Amino acid sequence: MIGKIPKPGKSFGGCIQYNVLKKEAAILYADGVRIDKIAHTIDDFNMQRKMNPGLGQAVGHIALSWSPSDSDKLNDEKMVSIAKEYLQKMKIQDTQVLMVRHKDKEHPHVHIVYNRVDNEGKSIPDNFQHLKNVKISKELTLKYGMHIGQGKEKVNRQQLKGIDKLKYELHDTIKSVSQKVSSMAELKQELLKQGIGMQFKYKSGTLEKQGISFSKGKYKFKGSEIDRSLSYGKLSKQIEQQQKQVIEQRLSLGQQLREVINKQPGKEQSNHLSFNPFGHLPVITPEPDKPYRRKKKKGQDQDQDQSRGINY
């Protein structure tokens, strides 16, 4: 099971109409709202929203999806039961909730619409929601023995359409190119050659990078929206590690060359080989010159000795 949390919405009307009016959509559960008419459902959500008018984005929306392999294990009641447990662990409680099942995809999935203004007029926090979602989704998947996905590499690309297809194309290209570069600047240049733009998000008023996004055509996505491994933090860390490995490999190769040269025979000879880092050939290191002595002329020593009073 995986949970997908879209960007917070501002309109209950648009969110509810999208979920309820979809072909073959079925309302599985409702708490605190009427479901006889869509207009009544929207009015009920908006009425409670007015209890906290300062909360601009009061619309909560989460989609829970299971693998097609889990279809035989799931019925409407089971999906509702797991969704309720999910909301409880996410600390989304004591508020209006609507659960709608869609059948437009091969995999089972249910959409949850909830009011971020609870029954007492207090705001339901959404900080760290994405991190909690990943943890709780995995926890419930293991608890109920559901299928665990094998990553994007196992997804059948041929069945993808529209935005999903584009996201996977971006994922595959960025992952491939990022493994061959040594800096973020080089990554940006190489992606541009393939028609993919890369933009950084900076901390307000500074040059400190804190986010990254990718674009192709009229579409633009955050790196983490494409895949968690493509967030700025994880992507820059990956490239730094690759650069470090290259440097370590070069240093290791240099050390091996020095060891080979030091083991060459004749190293102790007067004319020995030394390693020249700027060429392919060894250079000859000559012996130091001996002190120069002037050669004396024949009979010079005898004349000098006589001058000192020495007789033979």
Score class of each variant (00 low, 15 high):
214 F>H: 00
213 S>W: 00
214 F>G: 02
279 G>S: 15
225 E>R: 09
215 S>A: 15
225 E>M: 07
265 P>D: 05
281 L>A: 13
267 K>V: 07
266 G>I: 02
263 K>V: 04
276 N>D: 15
236 S>P: 00
221 F>D: 01
228 R>I: 13
257 L>N: 11
207 L>Y: 09
216 K>M: 10
279 G>E: 07
222 K>M: 12
208 E>D: 13
244 K>V: 03
234 K>C: 00
217 G>W: 01
244 K>E: 10
244 K>G: 03
267 K>Y: 07
240 E>K: 15
283 V>S: 10
218 K>V: 05
291 P>S: 11
259 E>Y: 06
275 F>T: 03
290 K>H: 07
254 G>C: 06
279 G>N: 10
212 I>H: 02
206 T>N: 09
283 V>W: 04
216 K>Q: 14
280 H>C: 09
289 D>Y: 12
237 K>P: 01
286 P>Q: 05
226 I>W: 02
236 S>A: 06
237 K>A: 15
233 G>L: 10
235 L>M: 03
251 L>G: 02
258 R>V: 07
281 L>Q: 14
221 F>T: 02
260 V>T: 11
238 Q>G: 00
229 S>C: 08
265 P>H: 04
223 G>D: 00
223 G>M: 04
264 Q>I: 12
276 N>G: 10
270 S>C: 11
281 L>W: 09
273 L>G: 04
206 T>K: 12
223 G>Q: 02
216 K>R: 15
223 G>P: 00
261 I>T: 07
210 Q>A: 05
264 Q>A: 11
267 K>R: 15
262 N>F: 08
259 E>A: 13
213 S>C: 11
280 H>V: 13
255 Q>W: 07
220 K>R: 15
256 Q>F: 08
279 G>T: 08
224 S>Y: 03
283 V>A: 05
283 V>C: 04
210 Q>V: 15
270 S>P: 07
233 G>C: 05
270 S>A: 14
224 S>D: 08
275 F>I: 05
209 K>I: 15
254 G>R: 09
241 Q>S: 09
210 Q>H: 06
245 Q>G: 03
267 K>T: 08
240 E>R: 12
272 H>M: 08
237 K>I: 05
284 I>A: 10
286 P>S: 03
284 I>L: 14
273 L>M: 13
278 F>W: 08
233 G>S: 11
233 G>P: 00
232 Y>S: 01
287 E>T: 03
257 L>Y: 12
271 N>A: 10
252 S>V: 05
237 K>R: 07
276 N>V: 10
231 S>W: 02
226 I>V: 06
291 P>Y: 06
225 E>H: 14
215 S>T: 03
220 K>P: 03
211 G>T: 00
278 F>A: 14
260 V>H: 10
233 G>M: 10
266 G>L: 05
276 N>T: 11
282 P>Q: 06
277 P>H: 11
206 T>G: 06
231 S>T: 07
220 K>S: 14
239 I>H: 01
233 G>Y: 10
286 P>W: 01
262 N>P: 04
223 G>K: 02
266 G>K: 07
267 K>A: 11
280 H>S: 14
247 I>H: 10
279 G>A: 13
228 R>G: 12
216 K>L: 01
285 T>N: 12
248 E>Y: 02
291 P>C: 04
